[in-house]
Design a protein around this nucleic acid. Structure first.
Lengths: 168, 168
DNA sequence: TTGTCTGCAAACACTTTGCACTTTT
DNA sequence: AAAAGTGCAAAGTGTTTGCAGACAA
């Protein structure tokens, strides 16, 4: 069973770049830094964007240098980066979606069930509510995830034209 | 692709019992009311509790009358009840978890990563935030889901004794 | 009689794992 | 040299689906 170590529970130290942070993490665990991990790291940290493993694999294949990593490796590496606190993970429509959120402020999402787009927002009030609720239940909160489901503007207006909306 | 019809989008009419509601739904679609569906309905609506299909199947088998339904049927029926607005669905740790929430007030959850218990809470403030955020993005919200992850009191205190905590 | 439903088993999508080989340290 | 990583293919999970027979409307 994977373990969310003390390391990953601590508030991130934003003085480090993602790469430094990751390398620190690997070193502290006696894990290795391999070309595959670097390629994946570069891809993932070059933008703040939601993706699943399939997309990441496709991206890697489209890379000019044709950087390569097997899906097994991508799954393993992505999990490792999640442990390291570089990637945020969530489940959506039966598969795992990640986003590079190291150094990014906490935020939540609107999820359009039409085009499956994730729209970000953040709310301090929400954080306050979470703290209050947790305290009330003597719960030690590690984090939270709020997803508001519905239809985005585009899907609302193109409702009758496309097959997009209401995919549940 | 399954369809979340107008029917299921409408606010539930709490004057109906779950059974009435379900039967209405089935009739309106020309779907049938079978013994299997009734057994499942009874089980599900007899308590307000979180379960996955595996648990539901086990429960059915433990029933005195040995009520039976294949897993395919349970999957199909549960999905149907979700469409009918009787069951709330969420994904957790890679599988789908349902709860009978017809007639119950909207609420959200604290999820203990130790014992995997779901603790309910509700917050009007939260609902307000969701509305505000959706409006801000011209988004038509259908619903929301907030999960606060962490450790419950029990798992916090029995931290060193058990293998419970930090299952990610 | 028509059309849905059920159960079974096969199919599926996504993810994890065992293993032999490679690579880092 | 020792330990961890990689790719492949096989094994797992949880869920869906095709189909033939059963059955409600």
């Amino acid at each position: 069973m994977a373990v969310g170590s003390d390391f990953s529970l601590r508030k991130v130290d934003v003085a480090l770049t993602p790469r430094e942070r990751y390398i620190d993490f690997l070193r502290s665990r006696g894990k290795r830094i391999t070309p595959q991990k670097q390629v994946i790291l570069d891809h993932v940290s070059s933008r703040h964007e939601h993706f699943d493993v399939e997309q990441l694999l496709a991206d890697l294949r489209n890379t000019p240098e044709g950087a390569r990593a097997s899906s097994a490796t991508v799954y393993r590496t992505v999990a490792e980066m999640h442990e390291a606190g570089l990637l945020h993970k969530m489940e959506l429509d039966g598969r795992c979606v990640y986003e590079h959120d190291y150094g990014y402020p906490q935020h939540d999402h609107l999820y359009c069930s039409g085009c499956r787009q994730l729209i970000e927002f953040s709310s301090e009030e929400l954080a306050r509510i979470c703290d209050a609720v947790a305290a009330q239940h003597q719960f030690r909160a590690r984090g939270h995830r709020l997803i508001i489901t519905g239809l985005c503007v585009d899907c609302r207006t193109s409702k009758s034209k496309s097959r997009h909306q209401d995919r549940v």
